[in-house]
Design a protein around this nucleic acid. Sequence first.
DNA 1: TGAACAATTGTGGTTATCCGCAACCCGACG
DNA 2: CGTCGGGTTGCGGATAACCACAATTGTTCA
Lengths: 199, 199
Amino acid sequence: MKPAAYIVDDDEAIRDALTWLFRSRHVESRAWPSAEAFLADWRDDLRGCLVLDVRMGGMSGLQLFDLLCERGARLPVIFLSGHGDIPLAVAAVKKGAYDFVEKPFNDNELVDRVISAMGVDAAHQERRAGQASLASRLTQLTPREREVMDRILAGKYNKVIADELNIAMRTVEVHRARIFEKMGVKSAVELAQLLSGKH
Amino acid sequence: MKPAAYIVDDDEAIRDALTWLFRSRHVESRAWPSAEAFLADWRDDLRGCLVLDVRMGGMSGLQLFDLLCERGARLPVIFLSGHGDIPLAVAAVKKGAYDFVEKPFNDNELVDRVISAMGVDAAHQERRAGQASLASRLTQLTPREREVMDRILAGKYNKVIADELNIAMRTVEVHRARIFEKMGVKSAVELAQLLSGKH
DNA sequence: TGAACAATTGTGGTTATCCGCAACCCGACG
DNA sequence: CGTCGGGTTGCGGATAACCACAATTGTTCA
């Protein structure tokens, strides 16, 4: 899936104009005439940037944005607004919208912002990939291994862990080795750094 | 220093109105007629919330905000704007302003937002205190100790560290013990968790 | 029922860590 | 000149971690 600008606007003239504009700057784009239509095609692995009209028939751009936020989408969003409503713009940006531009907009400036947003998304994407890989490694730990890991991260000695779990020290050692192996680290310090903040 | 609302506006009528408004809701406040006057009194331990007019004679509210950002101030800022300029509002919020309200504003709503901002500041304050304490502990490490600590955090064995620094293992052990003592931890794992992200 | 997997334990040995005790070198400071 | 802090080192021992080899139980799934 190539990164692209995803346009959602109920005004066909605007959609066409944006499509041509993006094409002229060699930015991939697709357009939908309504939030509902976009949602039908939405997948959580879309990459790039959303360009949303705030005011549309049916679901508004803001409602779509809220919905996508709830679903955990992290696609940067640029709102297009036809009527200077500051509280709306401020609220959108505070919620995490990437930008909010008024119509009529300067063509080149809009594309610049879209490209900038796509760059941000690409950067975030890398971090998300790392976190997903980490999460997948975590899930392949058995419950028992996780109990042991928690205690390792608490800085406890194998002996103490063994007492707490009522098992032999040797068993803790085995779990410990498996944890390191599954998590792809070779010391408790690396494990702590890998999981700092999470868990 | 009690938390308070710090008002900066060149319109005396607004300053007075805000002062009375805050007093009526039992919110401490102080007012300045210009960004320059406020800066003269500014200290980095001010707590609460800044209420800034964007447009003022001399330095504008936005310039003051930028300046404070550069100086590392983390006081939440609420802008007051008399002219519906969306790009300005969006830019301010994207830079981290807490809110942006248009004049004329609803009195109660403004105070609500100020109180909310002050709450956010109080919460951030706790985290800052922790980080400051951490930073102070870090500075009391000697340069040599920091070299050793870096390598401990890289998960290296004392023996390896000794080789890299061309010193005896015993010396590394001594440094290691001092580091743990000064940082108030009792294992490398705790140290890694304490410093994850930083350093 | 047999394979696969999770959890468990033991033995014995190597390597690391952790510490108290003792000591030396050196630059800075009064 | 003497003290103090930072950096250094050695010795010896207690404790913990790491690991290969070997083995037992119970569950799940084909």
